[in-house]
Every structure is written in C-alpha cells, then in structure tokens.
Measured scan of single mutants.
Amino acid sequence: QLWTVEEQKKLEQLLIKYPPEEVESRRWQKIADELGNRTAKQVASRVQKYFIKLTKAGIPVPGR
C-alpha cells in the first residue's frame, strides 16, 4: 500500500525522535510501532528510498 502524505510527515518526525542506533532494526521497529500501520521492514524500505532521494537532491538526512 502506498504511503500517505501524513505517514511520510510522521515518519520524518520519528526519524528525528529516534536517532540512529547500533542495531538499526530496533529503530525501525520503534518507528513502526508509533506509526501503527506499518511493519519495521516497510519502514526500513521507505527510509532507504527516502534517504537516497534526499542525498541525490543534496538535502541533509534527518537524524544524522
């Protein structure tokens, strides 16, 4: 299922709330739990694509 604008905005906020961890899967699980309707795997996939998009555009990656 496609990500809504609201989900993307919340994801961006949660990336700041939950900074990078030694075991990133824990971070994705915390974010997924707060989103409520996404799995950690879906979050990880979305974040990877989002970070690539930001990097290509020369925009700083949130939480890094």
Rank of each mutant, 00 (worst) to 15 (best):
A32Q: 02
A44Q: 13
A32D: 00
K41P: 11
N37K: 09
Y18R: 01
L54H: 15
Y18W: 03
L11N: 00
L14C: 03
P62S: 13
R46M: 12
E12H: 06
L11K: 01
T55E: 15
K10N: 07
V43I: 09
I59L: 13
E22G: 08
E21A: 03
T55G: 12
D33H: 14
I59D: 15
P60T: 08
Y18F: 09
Q29I: 06
I16Y: 12
A40L: 04
I59W: 08
W28L: 04
P62V: 10
I52K: 13
K56G: 09
Y18L: 02
E12N: 07
L35P: 01
V43Y: 00
D33Q: 08
K41R: 10
R46I: 11
K56V: 03
E24H: 04
R64L: 14
W28D: 00
Q8A: 09
L11Q: 00
Q29R: 08
A40Q: 06
K10L: 12
E34Q: 06
N37T: 13
V61M: 09
V61D: 14
K53S: 13
E12W: 02
P60I: 05
I16P: 01
V43H: 00
P60D: 13
I16E: 15
Y18C: 02
K30R: 10
Y50I: 11
I31A: 01
K10S: 10
I16V: 15
I52V: 15
K30A: 05
R46H: 13
P19F: 02
A32P: 00
K10M: 10
E22A: 10
Q8S: 08
E24P: 09
L15M: 12
T55F: 03
K49W: 10
Q13I: 07
W28S: 01
K9F: 06
E34V: 06
L15A: 02
P62E: 10
K53I: 03
R38Y: 10
Y18A: 01
E21R: 02
Q8I: 09
P60M: 06
G63N: 10
S25D: 12
P20G: 08
A32L: 01
Q48F: 06
K53C: 06
K49N: 13
K17T: 07
V23F: 06
Y50Q: 14
R38P: 02
D33N: 10
A40V: 08
T39L: 02
L54Q: 15
A32M: 01
D33S: 08
K30E: 02
K56R: 13
A57E: 13
K53H: 13
Q29N: 09
L11W: 00
K41M: 10
K56C: 04
D33E: 09
T55V: 08
I52A: 15
Q48K: 13
I16C: 05
E21W: 02
W28N: 01
I59M: 14
V61G: 10
E34A: 09
R26N: 13
F51L: 14
I59Q: 15
K9H: 09
G58T: 06
G58Q: 14
A40P: 13
N37Y: 05
I31R: 01
P60Q: 10
P20T: 12
Q13M: 14
P20E: 15
L54N: 15
R64I: 08
K41A: 13
F51R: 13
L35G: 02
S25I: 11
D33R: 08
L14H: 00
K10C: 05
V47D: 02
E21S: 06
A44K: 12
R46Y: 14
K9W: 03
L35V: 02
E34S: 07
E12L: 04
K49R: 09
P19V: 06
K49T: 13
T39I: 02
L11T: 01
A40S: 09
G36R: 07
T55M: 07
Q8G: 06
K30G: 02
I31G: 02
R38Q: 06
K17V: 06
I59R: 12
L54S: 15
K10G: 03
F51H: 13
E34G: 05
K17E: 07
Y18P: 00
L54W: 11
P60S: 11
A40G: 09
E34C: 07
E21K: 02
K10T: 07
A44S: 10
R64A: 11
F51C: 15
A44V: 05
E24T: 04
W28Y: 10
I31K: 00
E22D: 14
Q29Y: 04
L14P: 00
V47W: 03
T39Y: 01
F51Q: 15
K41V: 10
A44E: 14
V23A: 08
K9R: 09
R27W: 02
R27I: 00
L14M: 08
Y50H: 14
D33I: 11
Y18N: 03
V61L: 11
E21T: 08
R64N: 13
T55Q: 14
E24A: 08
I59K: 15
R27D: 02
K49Y: 05
V23E: 13
